[in-house]
Amino acid sequence: MRKFTVLRGVAAPLLRANIDTDAIIPSREMKLVSKKGLGVGLFAGWRYTVAGGREPNPDFVLNRPEYADATILLSGRNFGCGSSREHAVWALSEYGIRAVIAPSFGVIFHGNCERNGILPVVLPEAAVQAIAAAVAENPQRQQVAIDLEQQKVASPDGREFEFEIAPSSRQMLLEGLDQIGMTLGHLDAIEAFERAFRKRRPWLFEA
């Protein structure tokens, strides 16, 4: 997994609340049994003029030249709610989004982000709006910086916002660790637990 340490980039505002994973990647865009090829379907319902089409909707924020090459999304409450599809995160990632700043996230989506190297940053709504306002005048120049080590977001107006993150998630992102590999490091403990558990709850293992 790609490491996440410090990110400085263009931040695009999508400040609606409750943007669900189907809005992030519509079901109809998940055509392949793969984690790849999803970037083009990101926000397809809003990004293109017609459903299933590919003609950019000039009004959609990510299509506006001033927000070109955005790597950070600023969003409203409950971003990534709805369906558990990890495709939403794979689509964001392939598009180039490396961090999302929002007042809250859908629970499953939040974990999916961390496991795929995207940093979900929780900041109060007022802070997210303040950052969006500070960016708005000239998004290409007024970039946002996120320092995971320091757990700080620096807004282009000079304000800094601290954020919280679970220590294990922080470590995983900072070091770009693979969680399966990390867990298999505990294989002895898993096997010992399993032996005792099978004796205790044998009916769960009836073949």
Partner: peptide, 20 residues
Amino acid sequence: WGIGSSQAEHAMATSTLVVK
């Protein structure tokens, strides 16, 4: 509970999940 695909891979490969 519902999980993401990577977690499903994790659960199948390790019989465990890392959960808060």
